[in-house]
């Protein structure tokens, strides 16, 4: 069974009488351990898709099953718990809280899952080590470079050991060299077995991932599946 199963997902907004289909009948499976990119120009619906995948939003039509649980009519509190335990987010603008130091920022998801303080610190330090930032634990986010901030944000996304990590334009706010380093980090995490979904408008970045899904006008326009293309043998 796939880690994420989307079946006939539609997201419809109404502006006045006009119907806007942000997502139109999308069916998609994501297997555990995959490294996927969702690409598309702005306004294509890729962000809406990511929000629905990330339990931040719910679809107008269709069903979504995440890690064996059907997210149908889930309460906001259940969705919050899902985001907390099963999902990690990496954002374009890092979204680290400026008043907390790096370690405290990384501890934040565990605060909301009531992990005891000592374990929180231990796990946060481990996550920092994973992204190569263990010497910056006591720094404030604004004392770090963009690349370091994004590494800290990735550590925060990983700290609760989520089933899937969503990265929304993670290199969009970085220069190309730092961006490459961040992509290398994602590749390395992918090799370690993490499921990662990369959302971007940049085909060059999407080229890093084995599987690519292109969204246009709310529909899946093109997929590059390594298995279907015969690029991968397993």
């Amino acid at each position: 069974m796939a880690l994420v199963e989307l079946r006939n997902i539609s997201k419809i907004y109404y502006v006045g009488d006009e119907e806007i289909r942000a997502l139109d009948d999308i069916t998609l499976d994501i297997q555990s351990g995959e490294f996927i990119s969702i690409i598309g120009p702005s306004g294509s619906g890729k962000s809406t898709l990511m929000h629905i995948l990330g339990c931040l939003d719910s679809p107008t039509k269709g069903t979504i099953q995440l890690d064996g649980t059907l997210l149908h009519n889930a309460s906001p509190a259940q969705l919050a718990a899902f985001r907390n335990r099963k999902i990690g987010f990496v954002f374009q603008f890092f979204n680290l809280l400026p008043k907390l130091n790096v370690l405290q920022n990384i501890e934040l998801p565990m605060v909301y899952s009531s992990v005891p303080a000592r374990e929180r610190k231990e796990r946060a330090l481990n996550a920092l080590k994973m992204v190569g930032m263990d010497n910056r634990a006591k720094h404030r986010p604004l004392q770090l470079s963009g690349g370091q901030q994004q590494r800290a944000a990735i550590a925060r996304a990983l700290v609760n050991n989520p089933r899937i990590v969503f990265a929304d334009e993670p290199t969009g706010n970085l220069d190309s060299r730092t961006g490459e380093a961040i992509l290398d980090l994602f590749l390395q995490l992918s090799r370690e077995g993490r499921t990662i979904v990369l959302v971007t408008h940049d085909p060059e970045i999407a080229a890093v991932t084995p599987r690519r899904i292109e969204i246009r006008d709310g529909k899946i326009a093109k997929t590059l599946d390594p298995k279907l293309a015969g690029l991968e043998t397993k």
């Binding site: 919050a80 985001r83 907390n84 335990r85 909301y112």
Partner: peptide, 16 residues
């Protein structure tokens, strides 16, 4: 507002 959005994204409930 962004901080609150982030807190919600990483699992803060409405109540918290």
């Amino acid at each position: 507002i962004r901080e609150i959005g982030l807190r919600k994204a990483i699992g803060a409930t409405t109540f918290s």
